[in-house]
Design a protein around this nucleic acid. Structure first.
Length: 747
DNA sequence: CTTCGCGCTCTTTTT
DNA sequence: GAGCGCGAAG
């Protein structure tokens, strides 16, 4: 298979890339800096293995960080090598996906060995928390001392550390731990009873499967002779063990990563995996990709000048042949509204500036990044008012919207009758007159008779304490689900889904509430089912549901649509844009600092900053606001905090940075701080911590609300974070608005 | 027994 | 702003 294609494979790569791609078998670690072409190396490595090594596509497993990256890799590969050396079509054999989707795929095949059925549900964070809430209530856990969220967090951390409930119980220290241990045990039991797994289980159960059934593991180690992993620095312990188990036979692990871009430590990722790779695989070959093809030199140097402040990193420096380009621009704003306005100004400026020139800018060339999702709102409002098209990635995810989850819960229950979480969600939505008391009795009946909750509904006639009227309602619901569970095998997926959604009456209910956006979201679900059904001949509802539960907003993001992209820095990982804005560069916000943080947390924030800056190809804007209203969580409530500029701004090598002049703020109050702008920390900031916006709020003042428009304040109630205004709006009448969330502009 | 309405809480990042 | 839980109304 030499010939043109093979030469082409290596010729377009630089020396380091070529060495990595063409390296012989065995463990390989590619330390691959930002923008150094690591996706390219991975793709070419796979092509090389097939073209040159004669490896069959179905002997290769590639792990990516997002589903989108997996899809892109598939597409690139089919362009690069439509057929492999063995004339083996990629799409038939190659496994590409995220850890979670690959694990789910394996588990579907062998679920019975672990005591689950193939139809097992995958519970998202909300489902998980709901289940924990229920258990917490059942066990009478004092929630003032232990919130369900905290318990959930601890359980997840224990699971990630491969600690079972009984091991956790043994290791438990204080009374809280003992409570958590009991919740943990019951939680796992319920998941099992519901034939359901949470995100952590998806990673853990394959390991258990491999341990219990060595013949299954042997099957996979024989099958996956080459394993490639992207974003290796963000694998957690369990994922690493999964890799090691699969690679035990041939040890052909091709791991690509960059310790400077590890940003998921808080989720259990261990940079250690990359730092220790050489110890775990002493014979491994290490390659370094340090030439950056993405960013201008100014951007690269600026990013470098900050990341070198981290102590826990492998020393390296990226270089580029590209021109210096424009300096990194610093934008200083009075407050968050002003910041959004400046960003808007710069976008319009860039677009008009480049029009008529050699290059022209489109909206799709811009991305606005921020540390927390909450920051998107003000920027969003500003762009919307200016008529700039934009898309938001993340925040409230599409498949986590209430109406979407409601519809999916019907499908989940029909697919997996043991799924009590889904059942509870919809048994009385839309309202059917089945209340909490009846449900409690049904649950009790199910427990005593060792039935699934759904079966208990079918046997409602045997529960004397439930009156005839309620009984009929329960039975009607049971028959409804039962009917669609069997129709599932008779109708096509799309027909079935359409009929089911229609029969639930949810759309009619939402229309009567005039919630048209929600109706549209449900239509979008049906559209996506249609799309899914068209993609796979053997499309099943189980397959669709699995896909949906592992999909993220970034997977749904369409980079081709001509709109400005708004997203968190975390979501931007792996992406690139000609022009990047990083907003909210204020001490406390980015780096985000909480009490109890340690040095390593700050280093992760710095890596996040590094990831953000290296997304930019041509121009990087950094912005901060001197004051920002922020929910502080303390008794002071909503305050206009005066912020120091982020330490990252001070750490930047100033040779690559330029302050840009910005338009003064207009419609809003300016909070002019003494001494003007602040740059660097030494300069003391006046303490405006307690100066709250309350001063400006008076009866009779006019305000502007992003949706309701202009209005007059009629009354002021509450204090601090509960500060509530009664406002007479010109268009929509009188409403009560919490200042903290209302996003009001005082005029 | 169910439904309605009010008050409370939530904000770090995500599979 | 929105979901959830709790207490009162129907």
């Amino acid at each position: 298979m030499s010939g043109k294609k093979y030469d082409y494979l290596l010729e377009t790569l630089n020396a380091a890339q070529r060495q990595a791609v063409a390296s012989s078998a065995g463990p390989i670690l590619v330390l691959s800096g930002a923008g150094s072409g690591k996706t390219r190396v991975l793709t070419y490595r796979i092509a090389y293995l097939i073209e040159r090594g004669g490896i069959r596509a179905d002997n290769i497993l590639a792990v990516t960080f997002t589903n989108k990256a997996a899809q892109e890799m598939q597409e690139r590969l089919s362009r690069l090598v439509p057929y492999g050396a063995s004339r083996f079509n990629y799409h038939d054999g190659l496994w590409v996906g995220t850890f979670h989707s690959i694990c789910a795929r394996i588990l579907r095949l062998h679920a019975d060995r672990l005591g689950f059925s193939r139809q097992f549900s995958i519970y998202d964070s909300e489902d998980q928390l709901g289940l924990i809430r229920q258990i917490v209530a059942e066990l009478n856990v004092p929630t003032d001392k232990l919130s369900p969220g905290a318990i959930h967090h601890r359980i997840s951390r224990a699971k990630n550390g491969l600690q079972t409930a009984s091991q956790f119980a043994e290791a438990s220290g204080d009374f809280r731990d003992e409570i958590i241990a009991r919740v943990y045990a019951l939680y796992q039991q319920r998941l099992r009873e519901n034939n359901a797994m949470d995100f952590d289980d998806l990673l853990i159960y394959p390991l258990e499967l491999f341990r219990q059934h060595t013949e299954i593991l042997a099957n996979y180690t024989q099958r996956f002779r080459h394993i490639l992993v992207d974003e290796f620095q963000d694998t957690n312990r369990t994922q690493y063990l999964f890799l090691r188990a699969l690679a035990a036979r041939d040890r052909n692990v091709f791991a690509v990563g960059d310790d400077d871009q590890s940003i998921y430590r808080w989720r259990g990722a261990e940079v250690r995996n990359i730092l220790d790779f050489e110890q775990d695989f002493p014979d491994c070959k290490v390659f370094r990709l340090e030439q950056n093809y993405r960013s201008t030199r100014n951007i690269l140097e600026a990013a470098h000048s900050v990341i070198v402040k981290n102590h826990q990193r492998l020393p390296k420096k990226l270089w580029t042949e590209r021109e210096a380009g424009e300096p990194v621009a610093l934008l200083e704003a009075e407050n968050e509204f002003h910041e959004a306005q400046i960003i808007l100004d710069k976008i319009t400026e860039e677009i008009s500036h480049h029009n008529g020139g050699t290059s022209s800018r489109s909206f799709r060339d811009f991305a606005i990044l921020y540390r927390t999702n909450a920051q998107s709102r003000v920027i969003e409002d500003t762009l919307r008012r200016a008529g700039i098209p934009y898309v938001i990635v993340g925040g409230l995810r599409f498949y986590e919207r209430k109406e979407v989850k409601d519809v999916l819960a019907y499908m989940r229950l029909a697919a997996n009758p043991a799924d009590a979480v889904s059942l509870r969600r919809i048994i009385n939505y839309p309202l059917r007159g089945i209340g909490e008391t009846t449900i409690k009795k049904l649950e009790e009946f199910a427990r005593v008779n060792n039935l699934t909750l759904l079966k208990a509904l079918g046997g409602v006639g045997e529960i004397p304490t439930i009156k005839a009227g309620s009984r009929d309602k329960v039975l009607a619901f049971y028959n409804f689900i039962d009917r669609y569970a069997s129709l599932k095998n008779q109708l096509s997926l799309l027909e079935w889904a359409n009929a089911l959604v229609d029969a639930t009456g949810i759309v009619r209910l939402l229309k009567s509430e005039n919630a048209l956006e929600r109706v549209e979201n449900i239509n979008e679900v049906l559209r996506s089912i249609h799309e899914y059904a068209g993609q796979f001949r053997d499309a099943t509802i189980e397959g669709y549901l699995e896909r949906v539960s592992l999909i993220t907003d970034i997977d749904r993001w369409d980079e081709k649509s001509n709109a400005v992209t708004l997203m968190t820095l975390h979501s931007a990982k792996g992406l690139e844009f000609p022009i990047i804005f990083i907003s909210g560069l204020e001490e406390g916000l980015f780096p985000l600092i909480r009490t109890g943080d340690v040095d390593s947390d700050l280093e992760e924030e710095r890596r996040l900053f590094y990831v953000g800056t290296t997304r930019a190809k041509e121009k990087l804007f950094l912005s901060y606001a001197a004051t920002r209203s922020r929910f502080t969580g303390n008794a002071k409530g909503l305050t206009y905090n005066n912020n120091l500029p982020s330490r990252f701004l001070a750490e930047l090598d100033q040779r690559f940075v330029q302050r840009e002049s910005v338009r003064r703020p207009r419609a809003f109050e300016t909070h002019e701080a003494e001494g003007g702008k602040y740059f660097g920390h030494e300069q003391a900031m006046p303490d405006y911590e307690n100066e709250s916006q309350e001063n400006e709020i008076q009866i009779g003042k006019m305000v502007k609300h992003p949706q309701f428009g202009l209005g007059e304040i009629l009354a002021v109630d509450g204090k601090g974070e509960n500060l509530k205004l009664t406002i007479a709006f010109e268009k929509v009448g009188t409403k009560k608005i919490l200042v903290q969330y209302g996003n009001l502009q005082i005029l």
